[in-house]
């Protein structure tokens, strides 16, 4: 009782801090926890005029419909394969770039490389996809003009299923490798210089120092970044995919999130697409918890 009263008094004496928190907390309640409450429409047959709780409860019907849908296999495969491709190729490149940057001895050259590689991060996705369309156009794009100059036929890159994932992941790397490398460059600059000196005395080459000192030095941050990426495994940067999508590449570009957009926002099938969305977030969250637990046990580095 006494403890409670003391806690209450403590809280009361800082009432102005809570006053400041009022608006932000209200925002979180409405725009973050509101949708979490609303996600129950995934288990209902949501009809807007009846409201969320007024709509009929249908259990797992919407999920059954999705799992048995013609598109389910394709959506899951596209989502998973794009994500795996990103993790395998796009994830390591910023690490390699950071190692490269720290190996450059000329400070000016180093700054130049960093400034140039950071730049594309600030370009909007719309512009990036617009650039892809211009560059890869079968008639006038410079990539196809070069192919023609070497005697090859034009390739309709943007209208092809086979090229879709390569173009998506490739342009993501182009845009984000520099920006994503910042965090590793910061971690590398925090490694104790004595370690390098000791290795040099032992006669270790630069490559060996990279392997035995630099890489282990940034392993914790690598693990954190990996956990964060795995926690968004199913999201696959779908805003860009949506912009790149057309009828000819749909077989490779239809992912779960674009399916939600098409069915939910465009066609108004709210309950069904909310169920698909919940399936998506549930997988993300499960993967996050699993990999975080694994990293904590095996590498003693984790988000929580």
């Amino acid at each position: 009782m006494e403890n409670w009263r003391r806690a209450w008094k403590r809280a009361l004496s800082r009432y102005d801090l809570y006053l400041m928190l009022l608006l932000p907390v209200a925002w979180y309640v409405v725009f973050q926890y509101g949708p979490m409450y609303g996600v129950q429409i995934a288990f209902r047959d949501y009809i807007p005029v009846k409201g969320i709780t007024g709509s009929d409860w249908v259990g797992f019907d919407n999920f059954d419909r999705f799992f048995s849908s013609y598109y389910f296999g394709r959506l899951l495969w596209n989502t998973v394969s794009i994500s795996l491709l990103s993790l395998l190729i796009a994830f390591p490149i910023p690490i390699l770039l950071a190692l490269l940057v720290t190996e450059i001895r000329s400070q000016r050259f180093k700054k130049l490389l960093q400034n140039i590689t950071y730049m594309p991060h600030f370009i909007s996705v719309v512009v990036i996809v617009g650039m892809l369309q211009l560059f890869l156009d079968p008639k006038s794009g410079f990539v196809n003009l070069i192919l023609n100059a070497f005697g090859f036929e034009s390739v309709p890159f943007m209208e092809s299923e086979g090229w879709f994932k390569t173009i998506l992941v490739g342009s993501n790397i182009w845009q984000n490798m520099g920006w994503a490398s910042i965090i590793y460059i910061a971690a590398l600059s925090g490694i104790n210089p004595h370690l390098y000196e000791a290795a040099m005395v032992d006669g270790a080459s630069r490559l060996r120092r990279l392997w035995h000192i630099s890489l282990p030095g940034i392993t914790p941050i690598m693990i954190i970044m990996l956990i964060l990426d795995v926690g968004a495994f199913m999201n696959v940067g779908f805003e860009k995919i949506l912009l790149m999508q057309n009828d000819l590449n749909r077989g490779a570009s239809d992912v779960i999130q674009t399916f939600i957009y098409n069915n939910g926002i465009l066609q108004g099938d709210f309950s069904y697409s909310a169920a698909v969305g919940l399936f998506n977030s549930a997988i993300n969250f499960t993967l996050l918890v699993l990999i975080n637990g694994y990293a904590r046990r095996k590498a003693e580095t984790s988000l929580w």
Binding site: L21, V25, Y28, V30, F31, Q32, Y33, G34, P35, M36, Y37, G38, V39, I41, G231, Q257, I260, Y261, G264, I265, F270, S273, A274, G277, L278, N280, S281, N284, F285, L288
Partner: peptide, 22 residues
């Protein structure tokens, strides 16, 4: 507890459709 509830939204949220409805 406030920090937990705020950070949690980074890893789990209602998704596109429920947000749209709000």
């Amino acid at each position: 507890i406030l920090m937990f509830l705020i950070t949690f939204t980074m890893f789990f949220n209602g998704g596109m459709i429920p947000t749209y409805l709000v």
